[in-house]
Design a protein around this nucleic acid. Structure first.
Length: 301
DNA sequence: GGAACATGCAAATAACCC
DNA sequence: GGGTTATTTGCATGTTCC
């Protein structure tokens, strides 16, 4: 696209998610990028605009207007999704007169929307930050507000690199240090994660993303090489119990939720599953029962 | 139909108890 | 040391959207 002075920001699908008001690395823009790739680079001042010229985010550590992603107005009822709005490419978007704009309407429920906290489990970051009068530091001294901001920023920066959650997860698994899956990235971005886990994951993601952005500045090919490593760490395949097995296990559980080692061995033999698999099933079943019964105590009849 | 994201539940791990 | 519970993590699959 020669001659474009206000770069269009696209995601991995080539969807236009916005535009950047300033081009700094003109070389990278001038270079034709592969189809599934980042097309522009966000640089100082790091502001991301949508096609309407609204600032949807900054890439700095300053507080961001929220929510970050601009949703399609036609689908405001799907709160679970956080897709950015596909926008038809437009002519060059002039920089906005006002830097910080109010959030676009009809967006997914943000962290400010009340989310019920279940009594049975540790609350997530999103649950904590959505609670009114909750201090930004939790009892362990974890800065929830900082984590929320980082999660928001992370998603914007990931999308601006044209990367999916799966790609980030695979890349993290392939690199040195702790491995995380697509699920982990998804939960982190949604803050569907405990403050402790978020605190642990944040520096890993931060370091990885900084490196990814550096590689991207050196060229799209470098980024793809960085991201495209072979995942090495694999966990055991998830067992899928047959309905008959579940039924039998539940029957055993009703009779005795805490079988002895010998009993577990016998059950495993009878159902033709690994002893360890059956032991874990009983552990998880007790956990589930405990959680649901705790929940019921607080449920309004 | 396929890609990307979201989520339920099995597996892994840490901390604790006896 | 072998068991437990509490918590975290990821596979498998559901949902959403193009």
């Amino acid at each position: 696209m020669p001659g474009i002075s206000s770069p269009i920001l696209t995601n991995a699908q080539g969807q236009v998610i916005g535009a950047l008001p300033w081009v700094v690395n003109s070389a990278s823009v001038a270079t034709p990028a592969p189809a599934q790739s980042l097309q522009v680079q966000a640089v100082t001042p790091q502001l991301l605009l949508n096609a309407q010229g609204q600032v949807i985010a900054t890439l700095a550590s300053s507080p961001l207007p929220q929510p970050v992603a601009v949703r399609k107005p036609s689908t405001p009822e799907s709160p679970a999704k956080s897709e950015v709005q596909p926008i038809q490419p437009t002519q060059a978007v002039p920089p906005p007169a006002v830097i910080l704009t109010s959030p676009a309407p009809a967006l997914k429920p943000s962290a400010s929307a009340p989310i019920p906290i279940t009594c049975s489990e540790t609350p997530t970051v999103s649950q904590l930050v959505s609670k009114p009068h909750t201090p930004s530091l939790d009892e362990d001294g974890i800065n929830l507000e900082e984590i929320r901001e980082f999660a928001k920023n992370f998603k914007i920066r990931r999308l601006s690199l044209g990367l999916t959650q799966t790609q980030v997860g695979q890349a993290l698994t392939a690199t040195e240090g702790p491995a995380y899956s697509q699920s982990a990235i998804c939960r982190f971005e949604k803050l569907d994660i405990t403050p402790k886990s978020a605190q642990k994951l944040k520096p890993v993601l931060e370091k990885w993303l900084n490196e990814a952005e550096l590689r991207n500045q050196e060229g799209q090919q470098n980024l793809m090489e960085f991201v495209g490593g072979e995942p090495s760490k694999k966990r055991k395949r998830r067992t899928s119990f047959t309905p008959q097995a579940i039924e039998a296990l539940n029957a055993y559980f009703e009779k005795n939720p805490l079988p002895t080692g010998q009993e577990i061995t016998e059950i495993a033999k009878e159902l033709n599953y690994d002893r360890e698999v059956v032991r874990v099933w009983f552990c998880n079943r007790r956990q589930t029962l405990k959680n649901t019964s705790k929940l019921n105590v607080f449920q309004i009849p």
